[in-house]
Design a protein around this nucleic acid. Structure first.
Lengths: 347, 347
DNA sequence: TTGTAGGCGTTATCAC
DNA sequence: GTGATAACGCCTACAA
């Protein structure tokens, strides 16, 4: 009797045919399982076997199929990351941190840009769950009800890292936007500034900006000062908006003596605008920023700001995720990576 | 005789059990194929079927498994992108372009940061091929022999987009670094500058930087000028390096009257340094940059530079890839998206 | 329009 | 240490 014949391959791949483990096995004269073990668990096969398999793999240029592996083992090596804007260089640091840890551990990173909207975040989450990512990093700390439910059902670990929220989905690795903004406001007050303005990105659908405003208001309250609506602005991202904001404030509220730009590159735009107009900083108006973009050190005068451990946040987020995935950790983590006020010459 | 009994699921997923198409099928009282069709090819089932299936899907929160789909259909919805530095905001624009097109067409983006090294790029390529990406976007235009061979064997479309190379692996969507640098050098000469210095990133393992130098040298030759080694520098990325370079040049070659910074944010660092020292730009020395970073418009004076269609490059790269994947296009593409000299006040 | 059979390339499991 | 077998969840091909 003939052995059950080899099933023919279903289709061709446009001429090129990718080799399978079976091809390696046949050529090496061993079983498929031995090849699998030689590749993934070398200690479980004899040295001689290992070498033989390796040789064949190299010879025919076999590239393992992770889709099949993941499907069979029910374990993927994919991490999903969703950021509000991939363009924003602030996130780039964090992405790099995640990417380094991921690739260092054999994981691959899928990145989605959700824009500011919660609904688009949900779509990205759906897509990632379909790919069966092993874990998820979200920058947002607010999500649609649907997104929350889906993540819960999927049973995968999640790290949020845009804000040290007290109500995380799962784990958080971040810093407190509230505390940072509060600290900077108090710092400016301590430096003697009386009329401190606050400019952030548009707060709608941006929990970070809202938290920062909350911190600013809390500081004012502690200082016994009344918030002044004319001193609280929101602007789109970009240098121009910062430039425009400083002009607007100095002209419409002449007594303003310090402006705290709580987001994006607004402060840089403002600083360059002051320079252009010959407004002394901090003589005419003091400037402070959020985040420690490299350029803040290089403008004239260097800008006082808040240093955030962006890379570290990425690194720790990924580590936290991998620990959970590998079962090395089972508990939720809430990690505050802190911030630091960098006093320079602009305030 | 009993029907062959349902195979038990191989393992459990830590308590949570993800539902399968089979679960949907059973609950809807139809076959698995009907569910598959209702989801992926709705036109092929009756309206009533479609609704019934949808209802069950929503009810039990079924999330399709793309790993299984890809494995079975031999078609993945993954695109791989490899950039030298994810931190670099220049790439961010391109990434966004790719990301927009990809997600708009149901594709997901995997991003790897290869660093400057070719060998790391090869590793990333290997990893992506294992995930069975449907296509690849590479920023580099030079690769290890191994990488080239693997890509060839995989038979997937590739777009390179860091430089309009004449020897692409497959398709190219980019601009000519050579022509851009040449054009800027000629432009500076036309403006009357006699001693034009050239500063780029470190050229080893960076084909873009090498092409730019080639363009600069070609322009000098056309102008009948001899290149002067003292006027040709390479520097690491960053503002500080630009600041240092301008100081170095002005002091070591006092007759220099223009500096062409062909990379990164070097020109910005230089401009801010000149300002700090009170050197007139372009009075003492003219400055020109490469790439149209937003900030170039905002420093004082605004910097003359080269505008590159970064986002467009990403968009077109992805479109090109998808066309090939879908079989809408079969020919290699070589697309020159051009550049544009932006004359501002610094030169 | 719907269903059945079998395969995609790998790993888990158990036998030898 | 090595191999045979079934299963992972879905899709292709074909039959009804």
């Amino acid at each position: 009797m003939a052995k059950p014949s080899e099933p023919k391959r279903k289709k061709r791949n446009g001429g090129t045919t990718t080799s399978r483990m079976r091809d390696v096995a046949r050529k090496a004269g061993v079983s498929v399982m031995t090849v699998s073990r030689a590749l993934n668990d070398p200690d479980k096969v004899s040295k001689e076997m290992r070498l033989k398999v390796r040789a064949v793999v190299d010879e025919i240029g076999y590239v393992p199929n992770r889709l099949a592996r993941s499907l069979s083992s029910n374990r993927s090596n994919l991490l999903g990351l969703i950021v509000p804007s991939i363009r924003n260089s602030l996130f780039a640091e964090t992405i790099k941190g995640i990417s380094d840890v991921a690739s260092g551990n054999g994981y691959r990173l899928m990145i989605a840009d959700s824009g500011p909207g919660l609904h688009e975040e949900e779509e990205a989450i759906t897509a990632f769950l379909q790919q069966r990512v092993a874990g998820l990093v979200l920058h947002n700390t607010s999500h649609t009800a649907n997104a929350i439910e889906m993540i819960g059902k999927a049973g995968i670990p999640v790290v949020e890292n845009g804000n040290l929220t007290s109500t995380p989905l799962d784990s958080v690795v971040s810093y407190s936007n509230y505390e940072a903004a509060r600290a900077m406001t108090l710092h400016l007050a301590r430096m003697g500034y009386k009329q401190i303005a606050f400019v952030s990105l548009v707060r709608r659908e941006n929990d970070r900006a809202r938290e920062r405003l909350r911190g600013y208001l809390a500081a004012l309250k502690e200082l016994g000062r009344k918030p002044d609506d004319a001193l609280i602005l929101e602007r789109p991202p970009g240098f121009s908006a910062g430039a425009e904001a400083v002009m607007h404030l100095v002209e419409s509220v002449p007594q303003v003596d310090a402006i705290f730009f709580a987001g994006d590159v607004l402060a840089v735009g403002a600083a360059l605008e002051c320079q252009r107009r010959g407004w002394k900083v901090p003589g005419r108006v003091a400037l402070a920023s959020f985040d420690d973009l490299d350029i803040l050190r290089h403008v004239n005068p260097p800008l006082t700001t808040i240093r955030l451990p962006r890379y570290e946040i990425g690194r720790r987020s990924a580590e936290c995720l991998l620990d959970r995935i590998a079962g090395r950790a089972t508990e939720r983590v809430s990690l505050d990576l802190k911030f630091e006020i960098i006093q320079r010459e602009s305030a």
